[in-house]
């Protein structure tokens, strides 16, 4: 474990001389996988090599260095770009049906089967 941290630290030191040459940290990868590259067609920020995505990754790294947690970073981006940027829609009045409807259907279907089947 210690070695792992050391390796990461070395990467980071090398990277900080020239930010664009740094290997992205795992955290950045993890966050950028959940972001839509808004100027691409259906790619995530993580997958894209567009200018937009590259800058976004640097920004995420910067925010992590500032000590922001995942939630704060997502919120920041949502305030700038709207809900569209995150792949994982949060549950609010707009999306409650999205999350709940499949579950309701499952329960409903289960009840239907239960009624048909005799337990004896």
């Amino acid at each position: 474990m210690k070695i792992k941290i050391l390796v990461l630290a070395i990467f980071y030191l090398i990277g900080s001389f020239n930010l664009s040459n740094a290997a992205n940290s795992e955290k950045v990868d993890q966050i950028s996988k959940n972001l839509r590259c808004l100027i691409c067609q259906g790619q995530s920020v993580y997958d894209s090599q567009s200018d937009f995505a590259l800058s976004m990754k640097i920004l995420i790294q910067k925010k992590i260095d500032e000590g922001k947690n995942d939630e704060q970073i997502y919120d920041f981006l949502k305030s700038k770009y709207g809900e569209w940027i995150v792949y994982d829609p949060e549950i609010n009045k707009n999306t409650v049906l999205l999350w709940v409807l499949p579950l309701i259907l499952f329960v409903f279907g289960g009840l239907l089967i239960f009624r048909k089947v005799s337990i004896k």
């Binding site: 569209w84 829609p89 707009n94």
Partner: peptide
């Protein structure tokens, strides 16, 4: 549907499908 009805644009991606 949401975009038409509410003019809100959301993305539904891998995390959604995995979670459900």
């Amino acid at each position: 549907f949401l975009e038409v009805l509410n003019n809100d644009k959301i993305s539904v991606g891998p995390p959604f499908y995995h979670k459900l």
